[in-house]
Design a protein around this nucleic acid. Structure first.
Lengths: 242, 242
DNA sequence: GCAAAAGTGTTTCTACTACACCCATGT
DNA sequence: ACATGGGTGTAGTAGAAACACTTTTGC
């Protein structure tokens, strides 16, 4: 049908990162302020173009992560989220961006970019409410990243990636509550988590000094997929169909 | 840091399709025989390069689908699966491929390509066992597609996309059994499916003529996300950790 | 009538919820 | 002592599995 000599179109390939963390029990996302057009001065997800034609996609994501934060990128959970390639999403031309989702434990210092204009942890609520508007289609990438994180908390051990080791069970509970936006019963959570084989394993009989009784400490277990899953309670469903 | 004039590398963008269907109670995937190098003569997932720089990714997937099968592409469930961009996955150069997952009900005629050399429904078992070797990294794309389909059967109404309307509950059960590779109890399945609000709704009091008592007919319901989910039974777990 | 598949009832077991209660520590 | 969060017991409820049994058709 089309045996005519035909040149496939080339596109620019980029990676974008949704980096989530918990800061004082609130979910935050790392945003940079764009230093150049388009969308100069607006907040955006960290990311950038593939460096050269031999660079692996995941490697590119790690590189951008290192360039724009001081995180120990190696130990970070990093997972492909989706690819965003609508024509017109970037006025400079056809840019297709592969988004990655990264989860970081709470950091000592919030920012310290070596590359981008400014990097800052921003409460996700600010983005969702529209108080902070994101460049390009980064709002929908963020939405997808949040929904992915919420779903993975049910079926994988992702939550432990938010925590520094060792962690207490209520550390873990704060992760679930922040990401799901729901309060959970600490007593039931305590047992439910431990009922999942391989999710968490006890650490040294060390104990954490806070108010109240010291808590036992745990580390991530060997299992990545949770069986049974940690199902989130149904949100108050407005209408029932039949 | 690098303010030197720098040209971002361009890549070739492709789409690949994992098209699954049920044929005589067995899960099949659509494969084409490659007519050109590389991997000439080998089986591969249908797909191809982006047509031009203005073409949407999903549109490209639909176009390739129409070109290589006679499916009514419009009514097909089509969902982004992931992006495969390892350098070296294609010897022709840097090709990044966005994979889509499509689910089709059983078709009157299995093949009829207008574009590719030959299209054929192949039992997925043939690919998994290695009896049919796939070109490029299509084997791992297929693996990801299967795992995605298995997971979506639990949480979404994807299974109805395998069925022609109207369908019986045991039609639906065959979908679950084929994709999960597990036998299910028909009596419990019968009630479990109907206990999910909005999953399926009764169709005309028409009945299907087979051996045995005729079954009631149903259509897909309004809900896309299943609550409660249809959890698959745990596969016989080999080892328990503690 | 008999085979075959659809659909129902019932029992048992497990899992989740809600909440009362006890435990260990800092102040 | 007492406040504060960690951890345990337990009853009530809902859902899942297992399986006996009835119903409706084709032959």
């Amino acid at each position: 049908m089309d045996e005519t000599p035909w040149e496939p179109p080339t596109v620019l390939l980029a990676v974008d990162l949704v980096i989530l963390t918990l800061r004082s029990s609130t979910l935050h996302v790392l945003l940079v302020e764009r230093g150049i057009e388009p969308h100069k001065g607006r907040s955006a997800l960290p990311g950038g173009f593939l460096f050269d034609a031999d660079e692996d996609l995941r490697t590119a994501a790690h590189r951008e992560l290192s360039e724009e934060t001081d995180l120990d990128a190696a130990r970070l959970h990093l997972e492909q989220l989706g690819t965003y390639g609508d024509p017109g999403r970037d006025p400079r031309g056809r840019v297709v961006s592969v988004a990655y989702l990264a989860i970081a434990p709470e950091l000592p210092e919030p920012e310290a970019g070596t590359d981008a204009s400014a990097a800052a942890w921003t409460p996700v609520e600010e983005c969702l409410s529209g108080r902070t508007e994101l460049a390009f289609d980064h709002r929908s990438i963020l939405d997808d990243g949040l929904e992915r994180a919420r779903a993975e908390l049910e079926h994988t051990s992702l939550a432990t990636a938010f925590c520094d080791e060792p962690f207490t069970i209520s550390d873990l509970q704060q992760v679930y509550e922040a990401v799901w936006g729901q309060r959970l019963d600490p007593r039931n959570f305590y047992r439910k988590v431990q009922a999942v084989p391989g999710f968490i394993v006890p650490a040294l009989p060390d104990r954490r000094r806070t108010r109240g009784r010291p808590a036992r400490l745990f580390r991530p277990g060997p299992r990545d997929r949770l069986r049974p899953p940690m199902m989130r309670p149904d949100p108050p469903t407005s209408s029932e169909e039949r």
